[in-house]
């Protein structure tokens, strides 16, 4: 299990709508809208590949998303396994 966080940036005024859609994705937790149109997202995923898929999904499937920027990833559990 990996834990990764990212900033999802939306078009102005669309953050709430994007937020609602993000909240529907399994194993994704959101931490609110900040500085206008930045959503903090934390995802629990199995491997890097799944993370790539997830970000691609958010970029392509959710309207009004401008960017997805990863900020943090935790590998600890994987190493200990």
């Amino acid at each position: 299990m990996l834990i990764s966080s990212m900033i999802v940036k939306t078009r102005p005024g669309k953050a709430e709508t994007v937020l609602t859609q993000l909240q529907k994705i399994p194993r994704v937790t959101t931490y609110g809208v900040h500085r206008g149109n930045n959503i903090i997202v934390v995802a629990e995923i199995h491997d890097i590949k799944q993370l790539e898929n997830l970000t691609a999904f958010i970029m392509e499937s959710i309207d009004d998303v401008l960017s997805v920027s990863p900020t943090y990833i935790n590998f600890e559990d994987e190493i200990q396994e």
Binding site: I3, S4, S5, M6, I7, T29, Y31, H34, R35, N38, I40, V41, V42, E44, S69, T71, Y72, I73, N74, E76
Partner: peptide, 22 residues
């Protein structure tokens, strides 16, 4: 622990946009 790791991850994201989350 899982919640803690998530909070840490969220904080790091927050920090990158200049927000102190918790």
């Amino acid at each position: 622990r899982r919640e803690f790791l998530k909070a840490t991850a969220a904080s790091a994201a927050a920090a990158s946009i200049g927000v102190d989350l918790f």
